[in-house]
């Protein structure tokens, strides 16, 4: 389908050309302080930018508008992201129209950003060559944070499973007067017979034991 918003884009480009020499103004929306600091550091390492962090999302669109940013960065998984969408309305709180930068020339960059877990909103008419270093830095940082979060979740899950299996083993050892290895063998056999994970069988056992207590 044809898209025709040239008048808006041209207007914005004109408005923007007047501030071409000033450092890019970037707003990072991130409630977690440590994550916010990490992103700001990564951005500052990659160039001379004017970076602001918004941590409290109440009235987000207005807070962002107050900074008149060129670029807004926000975690793709952040539920408050929909608040930023208000900025894409020409009649919204920011008088310069903003687009999610995926609509612009930087197509490949957009996909990389989405995969890394960062969404960027960019003032219409911003040159791709000015945007690229910002996005490269943001993408790299978000990728690391996403990996860390996944690893943390995995570790937590493994620990939880470990704990529940230990408790189930303990229950079996006490109930049947058997050793630890034998208790684990019983759990593993039940899991294999039922086509379930050992942790699931252990959890069922712990739940039932709790009910019978």
């Amino acid at each position: 389908m044809r898209r025709d918003d040239t008048p808006l884009a041209t207007q914005a480009a004109k408005a923007h050309s007047q501030v071409m020499t000033a450092p890019l103004s970037i707003v990072v929306v991130e409630e977690d302080r440590d994550r916010a600091i990490a992103i700001v550091d990564a951005l500052k390492d990659s160039g001379d930018y004017d970076v602001h962090v918004i941590g409290n999302v109440s009235g987000l669109a207005r807070k962002i508008a107050a900074f008149l940013p060129d670029v807004v960065l926000i975690d793709i998984d952040n539920p408050t992201r929909d608040m930023v969408e208000e900025l894409t309305l020409a009649s919204g709180p920011l008088d310069r129209p903003v687009a999610m930068f995926v609509s612009g020339a930087a197509g490949g960059l957009a996909r990389a950003a989405v995969e890394a877990g960062v969404s960027a909103y960019v003032v219409d008419g911003l040159q791709p060559e000015r945007l690229k270093p910002v996005m490269d830095a943001a993408i790299a940082r978000f990728q690391i944070m996403r990996q860390m979060r996944t690893e943390l979740d995995e570790t937590r899950r493994a620990l939880e499973e470990r704990k529940v299996i230990d408790r189930a083993k303990g229950l079996l050892m006490k109930a049947k007067g058997i050793g630890e290895d034998e208790a684990y063998a019983i759990l593993r056999k039940a899991a294999m017979d039922q086509g379930r994970k050992v942790a699931e069988v252990a959890e069922a056992l712990v739940t039932v034991a709790g009910l019978l207590r």
């Binding site: 408050t80 992201r81 999610m100 995926v102 996909r111």
Partner: peptide, 15 residues
């Protein structure tokens, strides 16, 4: 999805 923009993007980008 955590947000409507996320639903839209997942669809637009082929996720």
């Amino acid at each position: 999805a955590p947000s409507w923009s996320s639903v839209r993007d997942m669809l637009a980008f082929g996720r």
